[in-house]
Design a protein around this nucleic acid. Structure first.
Lengths: 147, 147
DNA sequence: CAAAAAACATAGTACAAAGCTATGTTGTGT
DNA sequence: ACACAACATAGCTTTGTACTATGTTTTTTG
């Protein structure tokens, strides 16, 4: 049970935006370099995050990205849902659907509970939560290479 | 983020043992049929679970498997750890190790927290917990096909 | 207005892991 | 000795992850 690099990279991308003063644009290339991630790959995470409406993008020269909301108003659960594709721990509880074998399955109830447990954890955290714990590191001089 | 079929099948296998009266042996083949899982594949989950010491195996004719402990004394966390191979949500927090980039990583602390959150959930649940919620279904007539 | 620079979009590729099958061995009752 | 069940491991197929490559659109700048 591992989260994908998409989710990990995506989080780090958002954190890079979050440490900037509100409204200041940051180029993808800059973040890609600091985070040691391929620029083209990072574009895919951005693409996935678009529908959430948490990004403000400006095209053309001098363009870049910024957060459309304060970090405190960006809960992590939908971010994970987007980046991970689907957050459910097993397919049969994905998308709120009932699987056909529901009435026979001995473990479904358990998986539902676990799904909720993880989601609650993520709903109670925002980008600001991450930011608070790490502002020191992100604003430091050294290049971020990690994870 | 999905749990593997190994974990799902393994749980269902253990539940099948758990509904039996203590000490009664059950053949793998029988469980495999009821759960609609290939016998050979199921053997792999059993193999993975062996080191936990929760299984009693008897070889030869008339042999089979039984739980070595009451279901209430079998917490799910180590079961998941065995079946899933590694429970950590990201590689850098696996095995209690510190990753090299630790001092630079902006998200490590968060992942550690999530790791703990999931483990606590599983530590607070035992096979008995699963059993309580599902005894009806498992003792029913119909063949279990699910999940 | 052309050129450069940024976001935007999607197809394709290499590798790894998941999921499962197949085959053979060892031990134990009849 | 024979049947039967657990034990063990190698191999194969499919899927998905992680990434690259290519091209398009929009906007600023010289």
């Amino acid at each position: 049970m591992r989260f994908s690099t998409r989710t990990r990279y995506g989080l780090r991308f958002l954190l890079r935006l979050a440490v900037q003063p509100p409204g200041i644009l940051t180029e993808l290339r800059q973040i890609a370099e600091k985070e040691n991630i391929s620029c083209g790959y990072l574009e895919q995470m951005v693409h996935a995050l678009k529908p959430l409406g948490i990004l403000r993008a400006v095209r053309g020269m001098g363009g870049g990205y910024a957060l459309a909301k304060p970090p405190a108003e960006i809960p992590l659960e939908p971010v994970f849902e987007c980046l991970e594709g689907d957050l459910a721990p097993v397919a049969c509880v994905a998308g709120g659907k009932n699987c056909q074998r529901e009435c026979l399955c001995s473990t479904r109830e358990f998986w539902l509970e676990m799904d909720v447990h993880i989601r609650v954890f993520l709903k109670n955290k925002t980008l600001q939560t991450l930011l608070d714990a790490n502002q020191r590191r992100l604003t430091g001089e050294r290049t971020h290479v990690g994870l």
